[in-house]
Design a protein around this nucleic acid. Structure first.
Lengths: 136, 136
DNA sequence: ACAAGTATGCACCTTTTGGTAAGTGACTGA
DNA sequence: TCAGTCACTTACCAAAAGGTGCATACTTGT
């Protein structure tokens, strides 16, 4: 038999039989990795179509270069849609595509996990930072 | 009331009111970002406790340095447990902690999303690669 | 006339991340 | 005795990611 009666916890059902990516998880992570992408997705999922300047102010501390870059990648990945109104003081807004919306939904458990285990994660990162500082 | 009747799609419920991390999603992503971490999590979730050498062979193309490094970070983050049997040809194995197991579960939707949308993602990445190659 | 805001582009630099190759010490099999 | 295995460690280097700051063309407000 292949299954124990005392089945182990429901493992991540990756399917590592694909070209280029080792599994679905790998593919997904490549699409959302980028310092500001989670935040962008977050704001777009919450706020609907958002103008560039608004995003800029919402995602604190992001520079123009970075924000534009990440938006372009998200757009190229088919997760966000850019709408240029071709007005004369430029007006552009960004929103999630259906694909983007579905990804945002898949991200919910991760948000939840992060929030629930924030204490642990924060503690651990504080330790890492102190350790890294001591190394120099 | 705070909710529209025509509610927008269930957005990622980040809670951006925390120190250090902008939201739960942010925290989670920092913990799993790293070229080999998803794979490691994947194998540990599937296979239970795994010896170093086995992992090394399972996660193809990973170098010792990288594998050790990522394992150390995962251990420091409380996601995997390292067991050293202190035997004389060294014997060590790695397994998921309860926290690691819970994270693995939270990753399932991402795996699924990646698998379902693999076609899109693959296509888009192929385009990116071609574009990058043309740039040089 | 001049500053500020609009959405971006570009050049340059630093930081972070990943990769290669070698070495460690105690052991085992040929 | 000599190569190979075990689980690592270290030094060094390349590539990728991220950051700073300036420039654009046009408009609005002072």
């Amino acid at each position: 038999m292949t299954e124990d009666p005392a089945a182990p916890p429901p493992a991540p059902s990756c399917t590592p039989t694909l070209p280029g990516f080792t599994c679905g998880l790998d593919a997904t992570l490549r699409v959302i990795s980028g310092k500001w992408k989670p935040l962008i997705l977050y704001f777009l999922a919450q706020g609907g179509p958002t103008r560039y300047g608004e995003l800029r102010r919402a995602v604190r501390d992001v520079s123009d270069k970075m924000l534009i870059q990440q938006l372009k990648e998200l757009e190229a990945d088919g997760l966000v849609k850019r709408t240029d109104y071709r007005e004369i003081p430029p007006r552009v807004d960004y929103s999630l595509t259906p694909l983007g919306v579905s990804l945002a939904q898949a991200l919910v458990p991760l948000c939840t996990w992060g929030t629930e285990n924030m204490a642990e994660v924060t503690r651990v990162f504080a330790m890492r930072a102190r350790w890294a500082a001591g190394k120099e």
